[in-house]
Simulated scan of single mutants.
Amino acid sequence: MKLSDFRDLDFQNAGNWPQGVKMTFCVLLFLVICLLGWYFQIRGQQEDLEGKQKQESSLKQDFSIKQAKAVNLEALRQQLEEMKDMLRQMLLQLPSRTEMPELLVDISQTALSSGIENDLFQPGAEQIKEFYAEKPITLRMVGSYHQFGAFISGVASLPRVVILTMHDVSLRPQPTQATAAGAKPALMNGPLALEGTVKTYRYVDDDEQAANAPPAVPPRPGAAPPPKPAAGGHGGMQ
């Protein structure tokens, strides 16, 4: 087969082409068909295959993580129940609703017995949270450093667990005649003024939680009714 065989080709009479030319054109046509087939068919399938392989790897990793959690599920449930029991026991150590007024009196009396002057001791409105209630107290007390230490120690020794958190509380030396004359205030022995807001807490029992729970949202008109339990089943939460 010579180069001149390709120069004088008659495309309207391809049947009379030399045998070598026919074979060459068949090979070229086959390669073009393969290239077009790969570009329009196989290329997209290869990209899909790579995407599926990456998805498979991600799903295997997720499966391994979830399988490890499923293996320890019972132990985690038991641990959760133990933590709930511990929380219940800790909440029961807080004062109840009926004990709160007496507790406020005890706190005030503890301050007085420590030698602290209660210029202001004003309980505010109670705020009920999910399983506890907080009672803000606006106060202004005047006493020495050691008197405040005795007050804190006395509150800690009350029969019920008393939690006091401070909010916007300041502790400053109380002006006296000596400091007014220019003397430096003595932080350890001089009078101190503590003012601001503290909060104390009590636990909320189940009945009170139910009473303060938000009302159930009624179903929208036209909404499907909730499914009925199967015969022989028992409702409720575990």
Rank of each mutant, 00 (worst) to 15 (best):
V155P: 04
R220E: 15
L158E: 04
V198Y: 02
K199V: 04
V169N: 02
P227R: 14
Y145A: 03
A181D: 12
R160T: 11
A156D: 09
P173Q: 00
A150W: 05
G190A: 00
A223I: 03
H167D: 15
E208N: 10
L158R: 02
A223S: 15
A224E: 14
P191V: 05
V169A: 06
P219I: 07
P226G: 13
A186E: 13
P159Q: 07
V198G: 05
A230K: 13
A224N: 08
P175D: 07
R160V: 14
K199F: 13
M188Y: 10
G182L: 01
L192V: 02
T200W: 02
F151G: 01
D206L: 11
R202A: 03
P218Y: 02
H146M: 11
P185D: 08
V162M: 00
P227M: 06
G149A: 12
V217I: 15
K228Q: 15
A180K: 14
P229K: 13
P173D: 00
A156E: 13
Y201L: 15
R172C: 01
A186L: 11
R160I: 05
M188G: 03
A178I: 02
D206I: 14
V198P: 01
T179L: 05
L164M: 14
F148C: 07
G182M: 06
K228S: 15
A150Q: 14
V155E: 05
K184Q: 10
T176Q: 08
P175C: 00
R160Q: 12
L164G: 03
V161S: 08
M166Q: 13
L187N: 00
K184H: 08
Q174K: 07
F151Q: 06
A211W: 07
P159R: 05
P225T: 03
A216N: 06
A186H: 10
P226Q: 13
G149R: 14
T165P: 01
G222E: 13
V204M: 14
E195D: 00
G190W: 06
P225L: 11
P173V: 05
Q174T: 12
E195P: 01
V155L: 11
A180G: 04
